[in-house]
Design a protein around this nucleic acid. Structure first.
Lengths: 190, 190
DNA sequence: TATTACCTACCATTAAGTAGGTAGATCTTT
DNA sequence: AAAGATCTACCTACTTAATGGTAGGTAATA
């Protein structure tokens, strides 16, 4: 059995992450999957439905990774480093963040998708905030700034680095930025 | 006299920064400026021509600001803070970075524009690198990481913060991230 | 017998871009 | 200075291709 729906989601994700939401069409997707354009509507009646499914699947994958990281890595900076590694894959494949691609379209983006994207980021912010707070408590993360502030700073840096280093096809530079970011989160004793 | 060309550039910039390059059309622009669609082609024969003019004008405005900052602010962190303030305007107006909007479209973006966008970022990276190097020399910026690495980290953080905080319409959060960023650049003595 | 998963054929709309024209400003030549 | 020529900045009307989406059908499966 070939799971057409999954294939559609996979190819659509690649298209959106590579060219933006407005920048891909059902025709592109049909060609990528090897199915007729109209058949896509059977699985995803409208483009917004597809977009929402894309965000849901993307968020679910991230959520699983976040749980794993928290279980597998004990300290704050290590967890943030692992979180940053999740973005690195995008740089290596030349794909940006799905939600960044959607977010950039701002006012033109269907309301529903804008909400989904905001929810995605809010989830990450909540996870980061918890991780950073724990790190401050156990002493692995520098105290001072509020965890909520640090969380926004972390996600901004990684989203920005992904945007930049995908353009320059420079995974090493991404890793450099990640290292500076993580290092800056440790308690300062130099 | 009304400078139609300038008006076209201004409105087009707002459109691209608000909805992406693929997300706006000559029809949208015509309506925004109060001119017929075909007349736009008189000023900008193709959409790529318009896009390139947009990037050129945007880059020129930034370049002027960079020169001013370097002349008016003496220390490294102060200069980076001023640089970050340039992005804040976008958050407040609900507009993203023009070049980020273009960059996100990646492979779908006409070759020429991709080159122009890369040049834009390279110029900023060069400026940041020089500023950070000077800061390390005069002791206002922490030593350790290479200026080139720090430059990429700075621009990534600001581009990412603009992306995020525009979505959340949260200029205060942008300022929070900027503060963490700038603070982290100072020589650490806590 | 429904339902699923696909198909062909179509639709209305919108996209970027072109053709060709007009009114007014400006430059050139006598 | 007048006459003609050219240029600028816009227009209406159009083309071609692509967009998201629909209608309705078919073959296999549950």
């Amino acid at each position: 059995m070939r799971d057409t729906r999954a294939e559609l989601l996979s190819q659509a994700e690649t298209l959106v992450r590579g060219r933006g939401y407005a920048g891909f069409s059902y025709a592109d997707l049909a060609e990528a999957v090897g199915i007729r354009k109209a058949s896509i509507h059977h699985h995803f009646p409208t483009k917004v439905d597809l977009g929402a499914a894309l965000v849901a699947a993307y968020a679910a994958r991230y959520d699983a990774a976040l749980v794993t990281i928290r279980a597998a890595v004990p300290d704050g900076p290590g967890r943030i480093a692992s979180y940053g590694q999740l973005y690195l894959g995008g740089v290596e494949q030349g794909l940006g963040c799905l939600c960044a691609a959607l977010a950039i379209e701002g006012e033109a983006l269907p309301e529903r998708l804008r909400g989904d994207v905001a929810t995605f980021f809010e989830g990450h912010l909540a996870w980061l905030e918890a991780v950073l707070r724990e790190g401050q408590v156990d002493g692995s993360v520098r105290s001072g700034p509020e965890p909520a502030v640090l969380a926004r700073y972390v996600i901004a840096t990684l989203e920005g680095a992904l945007l930049m280093e995908r353009l320059f096809a420079n995974p090493a530079a991404f890793s450099g930025t990640l290292a500076v970011l993580v290092d800056g989160l440790r308690p300062q004793t130099r």
